[in-house]
Design a protein around this nucleic acid. Structure first.
Length: 274
DNA sequence: AACGGAACCTGAAAGC
DNA sequence: TGCTTTCAGGTTCCGT
């Protein structure tokens, strides 16, 4: 599942494939990736002959800045950007295709998304950014995590800390895996009310999240341009406790437990997370 | 108002 | 064997 580190990887790849190129042709193969009521043909028309200026990321959102307008891309659960040649066949689950040229180099950048939870939102020149982007909280990589600010914000939340971390207005880019890993690193029980965390615990949480993000980023660097998500068949699980329920906690060796918390699978160590 | 749960999707894996 | 159910999780919507 794409969370902050996976989306940052996508941003770096798109920067080499798409930034500073000219879109010769765009195709949208499934309208469900667009906002309700938006016609593929109108998106295709608007993208043709645009110059791609930059690729940015906040949280799990990508913003593709064009000479006129910009595109917001969210990878949902199974979305991936992939680069190929213009003569290559369509990939399985290919939803968007952008054929671009930079100097003499032609490239065909494809968006694949099996489960279609991703989004591709074109915003025209002079229109405001989408609310999902503007309402994002601080991004741990772009802005860093300010412990005092986070502590203050959490102190006003009654909900359990784990579902609170999944709220993208608290911190941008934290998903189920990072929340699980970060709370284990900080030895915090995911069921604790967010407002009960001490400043010291919030500080440990910030460090744990940052460490989990950095670990994922460095593993992706070794993987190359197309990374594998942990839920894909046959994928290795590089995480400390996510997906390791039933096996010994790497810190205290007691078996890791799993529960559903606010509708999301939650692995934790009932012995050393308190 | 805040929170839980369902819906949106698909395919793999587990259950029967 | 083969059909049915469950599960995965990002986000939004709906009902309580």
């Amino acid at each position: 599942v794409p969370e902050l580190p996976e989306v940052d990887h996508a941003r770096r790849m798109l920067d080499t494939w798409l930034a500073r190129t000219h879109i010769e042709k765009a195709q949208v193969f499934d309208a469900r990736i667009l906002d309700e009521g938006v016609k593929p043909a109108s998106v295709v028309r608007a993208l043709r002959d645009r110059h791609v200026e930059a690729i940015e990321r906040r949280g799990k959102w990508l913003r593709i800045v064009l000479d006129e307008g910009r595109v917001f891309s969210h990878l949902g659960m199974t979305g991936k950007w992939v680069s190929g040649g213009v003569r290559d066949d369509a990939l399985p689950f290919e939803r968007i295709r952008l054929d671009v040229i930079a100097g003499r180099t032609r490239r065909s950048v494809r968006y694949v998304d099996q489960r279609l939870f991703g989004r591709f939102v074109l915003v025209r020149r002079d229109k405001p950014d989408i609310e999902a982007w503007t309402s994002l909280g601080p991004d741990p990589l772009v802005d860093g995590i300010d412990v005092d600010e986070l502590h203050e914000k959490l102190s006003r939340r009654k909900l359990a800390i784990k579902p609170t971390l999944l709220d993208q207005t608290v911190l941008a880019g934290i998903g189920n895996i990072l929340a699980t890993e970060g709370l284990h690193a900080a030895r915090i029980d995911p069921r604790r009310s967010a407002r009960d965390l001490s400043r010291k615990e919030v500080s440990a949480l910030a460090r744990g999240l940052r460490r989990s993000i950095d670990t994922s980023l460095s593993l992706q660097e070794q993987e190359g341009p197309v990374i594998t998500y942990v839920e894909e068949p046959g994928a290795e699980n590089p995480f400390t406790i996510y997906g390791h329920e039933g096996t010994p906690c790497p810190r205290c060796r007691k078996p890791l437990a799993k529960m559903i918390l606010a509708g999301r699978g939650t692995v934790f160590c009932a012995h050393c997370q308190r």
